[in-house]
Computed example of a mutant assay.
Amino acid sequence: MVLKGQFLERPALIPVGREVMEGVAHRGEARPPLLVLPPTPAEGGGMDHVIAAELAFAAATAGHPTLRFNYRGIAGSQGERGAGEALVEESGAALAVVLENAQAPTAAVAALHGSARVALGLRERHPGVAGLCLVSPREVSPRELTGLGRELLVVVGELDTTLSRAELARAVDAAGGTLEVVEGAGAHLHHALPLVGKIVRAWLKRLSGT
């Protein structure tokens, strides 16, 4: 039994080809649902990454359905670890599950670190992506963000110098999106996780139009 105020995610199975990836999902009535892409296998990432868990918690406690998962070859997910197009395929399979579970036409996608590249590929291929949130993005250039629109949110730590801050700000502004710089934080945002969750929760509210 789930008591008032408790947060309980349920196991989810995500078919991709002949294999199955593992995930955890949370129900909710608010829209859009949120799909969380963990850091890539090359980065050693998984659905239990602290930022992934924080985003799922923040979204779910605001009433949004959520799904976070492990790419193939990570933890209990079957198959071999992939990269590039393989990760886009896997995230597309996860997107299909979150849309089906929520009975929603579109979902928001939050991508951590190197999965920013995966999220861009997912958006190109799937009309079901309502908006992108890139947290401490890697493997992308700021100019690739220019056409993403006002549904774009980029969250970076003040001390994260991976991408040129000035170039990133210009690109996000040109897209009409939002750049949030977390004061005093590095790439992993460890001391500011509740703030990152609050930022993403506000972004989801904007996407919902409420």
Rank of each mutant, 00 (worst) to 15 (best):
G131Y: 01
A119G: 10
G114C: 06
Q103M: 09
P137C: 04
A108I: 04
G131W: 01
A119S: 07
A111I: 13
L99Y: 03
H126R: 12
H126Y: 12
A110S: 10
R138G: 08
A119F: 05
H113K: 13
A116Q: 09
T146R: 15
E100Q: 11
V135W: 13
V140E: 07
E144Q: 13
V129L: 00
L134I: 02
L120M: 07
E100R: 12
P137N: 11
G131K: 07
R117Q: 11
E139S: 05
L122P: 04
E144T: 14
R143V: 14
V98Q: 05
R125G: 14
V109P: 04
E139Q: 09
G131T: 07
G128S: 09
V129K: 01
N101L: 15
L112Q: 08
P105R: 07
P142L: 09
S115P: 06
L112K: 08
Q103H: 15
H113E: 07
A111S: 11
S141R: 15
L148S: 11
R123I: 14
A108H: 05
L145G: 00
V98Y: 03
H126F: 10
N101Y: 09
A111Q: 12
S136K: 12
V109F: 08
A110N: 05
G147F: 01
T106P: 03
S136V: 10
R117K: 13
S136F: 11
A119N: 08
V140W: 14
A130C: 01
E144H: 14
A130W: 02
R138E: 13
G147L: 04
C133V: 13
E139M: 07
P105S: 08
G149L: 07
R143I: 12
L112C: 06
E139K: 09
A116C: 03
P127S: 09
